[in-house]
Amino acid sequence: MSLLMVRIDDRLIHGQVTQGWGSVLHPDRYVVVNDSAASSQWDRELYEASAPEGTSVVVLEMSEAATSLQSWLDCEEDVIVLVESPRDALRLYETGLSFESLNVGGLHFKEGRRRILPFVCVNEEDIKALEALQDCGVEIECADVPGCERKDLFKWFGNAASGN
């Protein structure tokens, strides 16, 4: 298995992922790591039904994700991993899944988050988690769709944190 991409996207699996990135990266499998989705059979089935032909979707709990993903390392599979928040990306890293880069692809507006890009809204917790990952040597790349201009998130964080 190779990790084609680890992506933060609060919509998890959707068109940008399966159609946009999928057509460029050609994964065999999409792995959604999300405790809430994993705890609901209906949600799991919804995400599994979102898999484009020739691919599959697996929904895992955070506690089992790193172990399961590591155990697939020997298989001939290419995988895209999806988490919904910077916090979950950091948790995944801390539970032992080592990744060198992280795509920030969609953090939409919620109460308490501030918009810094059309597709990225952050709060203090989001910023701290991304900074912690960067401190671990993870390259943070911000791109919602393939081929778009890569944005440097960190230069916007000062404004987001101070409320300016």
Partner: peptide
């Protein structure tokens, strides 16, 4: 419009 997309979900 798109099976599997966010609107579909």
């Amino acid at each position: 419009a798109l099976h599997g997309g966010s609107c579909w979900q």
